[in-house]
Design a protein around this nucleic acid. Structure first.
Lengths: 225, 225
DNA sequence: TGACATTAGTCACCAGAAGTGACTAATTCG
DNA sequence: CGAATTAGTCACTTCTGGTGACTAATGTCA
């Protein structure tokens, strides 16, 4: 079953895919034009096929969008509660996926990236799924190398910092950021440099985490507020 | 539909409830005796009824267990992927709930608290749900007052510290813990004291978070390891 | 009754982490 | 060549958390 023959029968549950990338200094989500109206949009979705895991369904959906394998994928929750959805399913399982910026995207008028600040109205259940997925991604920053998965394999430290600033929604100090990066052993320098117009060229790094001590850190009760 | 007439028809999806509490210095989960065998156990579950949200279904299940409203509840993910489940549903949505220690529990031989380290075999899909729920609860410690929801309304700071130690799986230093607690403005002292046998009596506190500045803290890249 | 054990609560010191501004380095542009 | 621009580092300060030792208030028991 694909999105186009979604009226065939009522599926038990469907998979919603929230693909995120960074474009123009903003997070953006991939939406599909709804067959129901010229200017109606929705999250890509489909029902699971026999023998598929939920995550492999999400991957398959990504593939049909012309996106190669997302660089990261994770379940973002189950949504239902009577909210409307393009499928007639009672419940949909949302998967959040990240796509490295600069990945060649589907052209055509069927799919398009929308900056998060400027998304069109969505079916109510998908709106919840999208908001939940963003929260998941932002919340995973500390546990998962989310920022790296939004960048190409090689990147400058300034690009990495800008990605963190984008996800955190606040400016970071250059020296602090690099010091933290250093002590976390997350990146290794390559021998390539990139000259971006004016200014001193920047060294390119790649993500290459090293095993370390279990990061014996203190309690952070202050985050509870 | 209840657990006992679960063969009536195949539900689209079911709700699994993972109720956790602290007993004897350990986290424990509430399991129900399976009708299929004397010594078979399972997570409490049920199908959603018409007009119910998924979360209210979870609350209702808790109520049928003789547990008053859990002090905290949150979705812990959707599980399916062909793993077996007492229901025949394709997918189950897991909800994690916390019960304050000392809450009167269902007697009878149908329900029982099992320390996490000593749980009986569970249906495969429920095993995943349980593990996922524990991870969720442990991971929410920084964002949610999870530890407080496992304690009665009034508690000593030593009890609170022990609860954090239980959830974190490591010892904390008394002075550090209290300093962090102080600067987080999470508790307020009552004018009651509790004498626990020998030793100086301890002052009782209650959870009473005050709004504060958004805790403008640094980046924690070290957690990525 | 008075020393001792036990638990609560606090203090002061120290080490390490993060905030910050200023500095040097390497490039383009005019 | 000099100004502008971006990369990269340094040193100083501030703050947070780790730690052991201290005082306080109770019960226990010789």
């Amino acid at each position: 079953m694909t999105m186009s023959d979604r009226r065939a029968r009522k599926p038990a549950y469907t998979i919603d895919l929230i693909l995120l990338t960074a474009v123009g200094g903003q997070l953006a989500v991939l939406l599909a034009r709804s067959p129901e109206g010229r200017e109606k949009w929705m999250l890509p979705w489909d029902a699971s096929r026999a023998g598929e895991t939920m995550e492999s369904t999400a991957s398959r959906i990504a593939k049909t969008l012309g996106i190669a394998e997302p660089s990261w994928i994770e379940q973002a929750g189950a949504f239902g509660d009577g909210k409307r959805h393009p499928s007639d399913s009672d419940v949909s399982i949302a998967y959040a996926g990240l796509v490295a910026m600069g990945t060649p995207s589907p052209v055509g008028g069927v799919y398009a990236w929308f900056p998060l600040a400027d998304t069109p109205p969505l079916p109510p259940r998908q709106r919840l799924a999208l908001d939940g997925a963003i929260e998941i991604v932002r919340g995973r920053m500390d546990q998962s190398p989310v920022a790296f998965k939004l960048l190409p394999q090689m990147f400058t430290l300034t690009e990495l910092q800008q990605m963190y600033e984008l996800l955190l929604g606040k400016r970071l100090h250059k020296a602090s950021f690099r010091r933290a990066l250093q002590s976390a052993w997350l990146v290794e320098p390559t021998d390539e440099w990139r000259s971006e117009g004016r200014g001193r060229p920047a060294q390119l790094y790649r993500y290459s985490p090293r095993k370390r001590r279990p990061a014996q850190r203190g309690i952070r009760l202050d985050l509870l507020n």
